[in-house]
């Protein structure tokens, strides 16, 4: 009897212990690189050495004169902006159509829409480049946006479908029975109630576009160079410390955006 009690005591203690250790390891691996980059970006020396010997803002200040980097960042923002807009419109429309339909081909459409998340984006980027050349164009910003939209729509689609499935259909019935048109029902009832889901999807789509490499690698050229690719090239050629400063900037801005999104819309709740 006491033997069994000891075993169960050991089990009761060991399970939380193992999970605790695993979680800690996971968190360390998640956060450590981010922290290292962040700390390194404040170095006052010419190298990317960690830990830095002294601290300064000199590399952040250097960004003010980094024309090429600024152009790349601006390109990235423009592309991410339009990608988000188009992804939200297309993703929301598709989600509403798919949520309303009981048709069996909807499953096929759903799988198709989600495939960019599963298929290697590198293969898609290469295919897109061939396609653009086939129809007689050179890669440019609009094509880059289109490429990003394809890999970003799934984020909006997922969160919007999740929000729609939470939406009580009797609310829509109530709206119609009170005399409201489809449009009034959509913008007065449906949209406000799934808005947070769409917002969460938009946030994810923006971030996914902003740091997308595989698609941009093929669809962007020197004129339309985007930030992640530019940073990669800087590191590869001359270990530029300014890349650490840019990374630090992106990390800080992302953190601020996440906090705002969490406050406004409960982002993490929408992603569950």
């Amino acid at each position: 009897m006491s033997q069994r009690k000891q075993t169960s005591d050991w089990e009761a203690q060991s399970v939380p212990l193992i999970f605790g250790v695993l979680t800690t390891v996971a968190i360390v691996f998640l956060i450590a690189p981010t922290l290292i980059v962040l700390v390194t970006s404040f170095t006052d020396s010419q190298s990317l050495k960690f830990p830095p010997e002294g601290l300064s803002f000199r590399w952040y200040l250097a960004l003010l004169d980094a024309d090429q980097m600024q152009r790349a960042a601006w390109n990235s923002l423009v592309v991410a902006f339009w990608t988000t807009i188009l992804s939200v419109v297309l993703g929301t429309a598709a989600a509403i159509a798919m949520a309303r339909s009981r048709n069996s081909w909807i499953r096929v459409a759903d799988a198709l829409f989600m495939s960019p998340l599963v298929l290697p984006a590198l293969a898609f980027g290469f295919a897109a480049l061939i396609f653009v050349h086939q129809i007689g164009f050179r890669p440019n910003i609009p094509f880059l946006v289109l490429g990003h939209v394809i890999v970003c729509v799934p984020f909006v689609l997922r969160t919007t479908i999740a929000a729609l499935s939470q939406l009580d259909s009797s609310l829509l019935d109530a709206s119609y029975s009170l005399g409201a048109s489809w449009w009034m029902t959509f913008h007065r009832v449906t949209l406000p109630l799934i808005g947070r889901g769409i917002g969460a999807g938009a946030f994810l789509a923006f971030m996914a576009s902003f740091d997308n490499v595989p698609v941009s690698l093929f669809l962007a050229d020197e004129r339309t160079e985007v930030l992640p690719i530019h940073l990669w090239q800087q590191i590869e050629t001359n270990l530029d410390v300014r890349t650490a400063a840019v990374s630090g900037l992106i990390i800080i801005i992302t953190l601020i955006l996440m906090i705002i999104a969490e406050r406004l819309a409960g982002l993490t709740r929408q992603l569950r």
Binding site: D168, S170, L171, D173, A174, S175, Y176, S177, L178, G179, A180, S181, R188, V189, P192, L193
Partner: peptide, 20 residues
């Protein structure tokens, strides 16, 4: 006539008040 032009009022089991 579609539902929004039938002038039929419905009180739903869960009341279906617009929560927002």
């Amino acid at each position: 006539l579609p539902p929004n032009r039938r002038a039929v009022g419905i009180v739903f089991q869960n009341y279906a008040l617009f929560p927002h």
